[in-house]
Design a protein around this nucleic acid. Sequence first.
DNA 1: AGTGGATGGTAACACTTGTTACAACCTGAA
DNA 2: TTCAGGTTGTAACAAGTGTTACCATCCACT
Lengths: 203, 203
Amino acid sequence: MIKELQQFPLFSQCSEEVLAELLRWPYQRKVFKEYNRVVRVGDTCDSLMLLIEGVVEARMGSETGREVVIDRLQAPMILAPAFLFAKDNTIPVEVFMTTEGVVWYIHREAFFQFMSTHSEVLRSFLGELSDRSTFLSSKVRSFAVKGLRNRVLDYIRQHGTITSVSKTAEVLGVARPSLSRVLADLQAEDLVKRSKEGFVRRR
Amino acid sequence: MIKELQQFPLFSQCSEEVLAELLRWPYQRKVFKEYNRVVRVGDTCDSLMLLIEGVVEARMGSETGREVVIDRLQAPMILAPAFLFAKDNTIPVEVFMTTEGVVWYIHREAFFQFMSTHSEVLRSFLGELSDRSTFLSSKVRSFAVKGLRNRVLDYIRQHGTITSVSKTAEVLGVARPSLSRVLADLQAEDLVKRSKEGFVRRR
DNA sequence: AGTGGATGGTAACACTTGTTACAACCTGAA
DNA sequence: TTCAGGTTGTAACAAGTGTTACCATCCACT
């Protein structure tokens, strides 16, 4: 079990003895099946959630809006670290398994104590938190980019390729035919081409 | 000087002696004039930046896009805390003073040491970081809301009023006439009305 | 080979938003 | 008062995106 934790960069520098210390506090380990919901909108976040195994999808919706896939996350990964210590710790996204998976729950105070006494863990957690922020910043930035056309080019620059048109449309928050049309235009202008891996940049 | 720091929630629980400890490390204090740039896109973030006095505006742009005003911040406020410990600590926004102001710079390692040994500061900083993340999440969410009409209603719900049409248009990332038009529609439908403070919700 | 399901391309049309331009209004300064 | 500068309302048109619908293709399964 402790090996499962050691796959995380967060704990990679901890010896087994040190991690055993963390596990003296109460914790939980849950197994999820494919398509199960891990987090629902409005859940409060009182535990560090560690995705040990499996792949999840985080979706953000709103009554009046389209649903956008914020992110697809693969184990090992910390889920929603940004809400653990927030004043308003209700989670605004839905998280679903897209495969079978395992999640550990470590209570906030236990983790806080542990982190306080292990500065390499603290440093790493601050890094994780910050990286989530920069990720969100880039999301915000991408919405500020004008025109679907440019956002698609941005997307391909960052991800290298578009393998699934409909899934990418969900991430970009646009209708599938709209993305299809733009890709057709970009192909006509020789800016992208199809390869075996999907749409890639030309030149 | 130390009183300036104590206005921050981050340090509010620290005694003067404890803060004096932090200031034994090198630090800087800079005065900015109105319209001065505090941070430029691409700057790396190696110090904790504390806005002691004044008001700033954070703008995010891109070659191909409109410029969006991400946030307007008022002292006392930590600037860009999320980039201090990020793997990629280059800041993606421009920060400008909109008034005169003062910023303190405290080096990352000094602050890290200080935080490690003062758990109330650590807790508070984690809170700040997390709150920035939830703020960004809500930004992302607002872009996912469909239709300017609904985004405007959301905006008024959150802020209570729209005092300046052109400034709000910048925040929402839309053209001013578009916002004007939508506001006219909403007035015609009795969903908003003008008051002395600007546009407010009706009923 | 046949079938059903998922994915992708495309077209026609409606709707929303951007662009540009101009006029009305307000405020402070000369 | 007059003027300049800034903000807002509005109109006409251009451009982009959403919606809906239909068809083609591919793949797994029988």
